[in-house]
Amino acid sequence: MTETVDVLPEHSRHPFIDQLQKAFRNNKLTGVGAVLFLFIIIIAIAAPLLAPHDPLQQHIIARLKGPSAEYWFGTDAYGRDILSRLLYGARVSLLISLTAIGSAMIIGSIIGIIAGYFGGMIDLLLMQVMDVLLAFPALILGLIVVAMLGPSMENLVIAIALTAIPPFARTARAPTIAVKERDYIEACRALGFGHPRIILKHVFPNVFSEILVMGSLWLATAIRVEASLSFIGLGVKPPTASWGGMIREGFENILDNVWLSVCPSMAILLVVFSLNLLGDGLRDAIDPKTRSDS
């Protein structure tokens, strides 16, 4: 009567680990993106150790210098070392983006999963609110928030998070609706589990990878929005170094020293590029169409 179970593999890994592995194995660029992004994070963290100069120290004599042995990427209008400001700027940009996207991910997912899971009026109401937010372009919404609350690091985080919540809610809602229809959710209800448990232990783990992909792609957007807001002066207040702010400062002196805006631009390009590589690879790996199980 017993079915022989000799076909079971010897080890047992979480399917999420399998997906990650697939993402890196099938597409080498995913790994390139991940390594690049990790590298940038490490640099940002280690900025105080790596920076050759104090990013705020002005050397009026050495203003607007080109690259040299002393100042690898030259100096800005106040004679501050561009390389050091870039490294410290990375901290600011990444900190703002990561916090903003992190909170957007949590809040957006909760909203999306609740809307998708319960459906009906709750769904209608929550998603209407999200749609209103979604109607504003990210930059405009950020502009309104910062203009209302005043430019500061915290408000920048709030502004970016606010723009990112609706897409996360949408991203979480769609797979939730699909998962909700699966028999194992019905089995949970038949077994007398409460909604919080079903949502946390049975719905969330099955929509998490989709949210994660969205997170990596939106992180890139957040970095761009942060830079844009800082560029128009609604971001981090000077003299704190931020990439967007540096581009603006460089813009004013672009004829004297191109490096001033090119360097932070390149930094932004690199981060966005690495995150897009990573996000695309992850997305391909978890695409339901190519997924083998579930």
């Binding site: 089995a187 049975h202 579930s294």
Partner: peptide, 22 residues
């Protein structure tokens, strides 16, 4: 909740009836 313990269900599709992440 008490009744749920006493009556259960099994499903047709074995690929949809188990949580793939557990």
């Amino acid at each position: 909740r008490a009744l749920r313990k006493r009556a259960q269900i099994i499903f047709q599709d074995p690929f949809s009836s188990l949580n793939p992440r557990m």
